[in-house]
Amino acid sequence: MTKARRYMTVNSFLTEMLTMSLKSLTHLQRLEAESIHIMREVVAEAENPVMLYSVGKDSAVMLHLAKKAFYPAPPPFPLLHVDTTWKFRDMYALRDKAAKDAGMELLVYQNPEAVEKGINPFDHGSLHTDMWKTEGLKQALDKYGFDVAFGGARRDEEKSRAKERVFSFRSANHRWDPKNQRPELWRLYNARKAKGESVRVFPISNWTELDIWQYIHLEGIEIVPLYFSAPRPTVERDGLILMVDDERFRLNAGEEPVMRSVRFRTLGCYPLTGAVESHATTLPEVIQEMLLTTTSERQGRAIDHDQAASMEKKKQEGYF
């Protein structure tokens, strides 16, 4: 009794302190407020917005923020997954569940030409990304007439993204012109555009990889199990550890899948995404590994290995 009573006194004292003194916002609270503000601004000004949803951790955070921004209403726009048919099976499972939980419509788009030609990462090299992702995205946006698309890109991902605006304008043929972007001051975003033009909006521009992980931890956001270590069938090829996620994976002569304890730092098409050997099975352990690691996040992706400026070229062509 005495103990409980003292607890209450301490508690009410703390409440008193809280209401009397001013509250200093943490970095995550400031980032959250900014992202929500950006999303609401889009919904207020766009005609037909959509959220690009790639099922990764950044998409998970973006979706969670959207739920917060519009609560108690569901986010007033659909989710769009530009599919390549080559994502991990776990990703497809979470994609469908997350959309359902959020009460949002899920649109899945596959470039019909890529479907027909059977474009795949084994035979077609960079054409795989061009046709499924770059072309697929353009086609999907045109098909539904979306004028604003939310994307989960962050400025800390690599150098050319550091200069990307939050509201990034694209010409009628989806091209990005780095010399012709609008200045963004204070919290004022200019969303006006001519017919045919569109805007890519990046609400989590100012989040870093660590912020993302901390927020997922703090808010208990569901992410794809592939981010956690588990024994998985893998092969080692060109310095990358690749997961043999289904029977379509073509083994080279002499290659034999080996069970390794691995997890993924970023998720894409499974034959193109390198795993890291790890024993991290909880979020704090994943964050611990991330902080102790010595290589950058994108290193696991084959796309921008060749030259530092390759992402920039891709972006001008319309890659997200």
């Binding site: 200093s24 916002l25 943490t26 970095h27 995550l28 400031r30 980032l31 660590l210 901390q214 931890h217 703090l218 704090p284 352990e285 964050i287 611990q288 902080l291 102790l292």
Partner: peptide
């Protein structure tokens, strides 16, 4: 390395 939970606790209260 020693106590990731304590680390996370500290870092959640960072300002910007």
């Amino acid at each position: 390395a020693e106590n990731i939970d304590a680390y996370l606790e500290t870092h959640q209260h960072k300002t910007m």
